[in-house]
Design a binder for these strands. Structure first.
Lengths: 211, 211
DNA sequence: TACATTATGACACACGCTGCCATGTTGACA
DNA sequence: TGTCAACATGGCAGCGTGTGTCATAATGTA
């Protein structure tokens, strides 16, 4: 299963070959991330200091920075997992289709992992993204990463399709825009409709974008 | 002319009613910005400290922060002008069209200001955007601002068009994506083709995005 | 048990950024 | 022209983020 690669280490599952050290490290990672998320929800990212997070998580400030480069990163753990899922099928782009259609199909295939809105990955993704919605600091980090991801996508697509640079950039930018619109809409709708389905919303988003 | 509103104070032009104080202030603003841009081009944003910029510009560090909130902002002066131009026609959205077409038309109308690639606004925009291209720190700031701008756009479009939230978000995201792709392509092509025209590239980007 | 590897904490330090106060400069009005 | 308010600037102290370094303790292995 690729699941293990995508969700770095679902520490709840008994993963055999991992030594005590690695499990401890992973556990600390989760604890710090969880603590940060909670504090950010209670106060705000800006109003929360790394010192507070570290203290609440029972580690020193120096140790915090050994696990996360910035306080924002500590909150984004599960969102990075989502981005990894989205990117997980890029090596199977169907070059018989148009770049845009191939990308959208790849994304749609990957998104089935988020079909069950009551699953743990979905609930975690929702929690983080509700925070992201109100936190400019987190949005900035996402945006920065999205720039990097876009350029990776452009490279990947370039090698597999023979189109102009403008066409490729458009395919990538638009595909990503549609996915992002779907994600945000899903987050919005989930606040009133527990059963809102990300794959379904993405599917209708694709339909609307065609029109 | 709206030019004066968009390019805050083109200090080279003799603007009558401005007092000595405001002109001095504007001049200092330009000098710091220019200094920052030059240093960033020579070294990098990360490797350049605010102290260096301030010293090179002949002001104290404290004064630097009275003109710009961050060192990144000091470099982005002319890019914000561009964003202002792009947004300058949003109050005239044609509600007879689809949201997306209305947005694209509004953008295209505004872009005529960048028709002449040898004009000062164009050359400055190019210079900044070449830096933006290699500087993650600057891209992060842009991305953050783009989030804010997108939500403004969504609001503006919502009041003028009667569509679902998903449709509006899509229109906005896709329109912005097409514009951004055009801008980046223009920057790329300008390095080999001095005459590359932003409005023209934007026009073909719109055409390609339809297909 | 002895040893190499790794995790942690404490400290010092650079940098970004802000609040505060003291000083000098500008512009308006008597 | 002189006075005074508004404003611009610099210096300094302080907070928060993030990193390098060293000493110490815990872990895995021979």
């Amino acid at each position: 299963m690729t699941r293990l690669e995508v969700f770095p280490v679902p520490s709840d599952l008994p993963v055999g070959p991992l030594g005590l050290r690695e499990r401890r490290r992973e556990q600390t990672n989760v604890e710090i991330s969880e603590t940060a998320l909670t504090l950010f929800e209670r106060k705000s990212v800006e109003a929360t200091t790394v010192g507070e997070i570290a203290q609440a998580a029972g580690v020193s400030q120096r140790t915090f920075f050994r696990y996360f480069a910035t306080k924002e990163e500590a909150a984004l753990r599960d969102h990075w997992a989502f981005e990894a899922v989205v990117a997980s099928r890029l090596d199977q782009l169907d070059s018989a289709l148009s770049p845009r259609l191939a990308l959208e199909t790849s994304f749609a295939d990957a998104l089935v992992m988020y079909a069950d809105s009551s699953s743990t990955p979905c609930r975690r993704l929702l929690r983080v993204n509700r925070l992201i919605k109100k936190e400019p600091a987190l949005r900035a980090v996402l945006a920065r990463e999205s720039v990097r991801r876009t350029s990776v996508l452009v490279d990947v697509v370039s090698t597999r399709f023979d189109c102009s640079d403008l066409q490729i950039r458009l395919a990538v930018d638009v595909s990503v825009a549609v996915l992002r619109a779907a994600l945000e809409t899903w987050v919005d709708r989930s606040s009133t409709d527990e059963t809102a389905s990300l794959p379904e919303i993405y599917s209708s988003a694709r339909g609307l974008a065609r029109a």
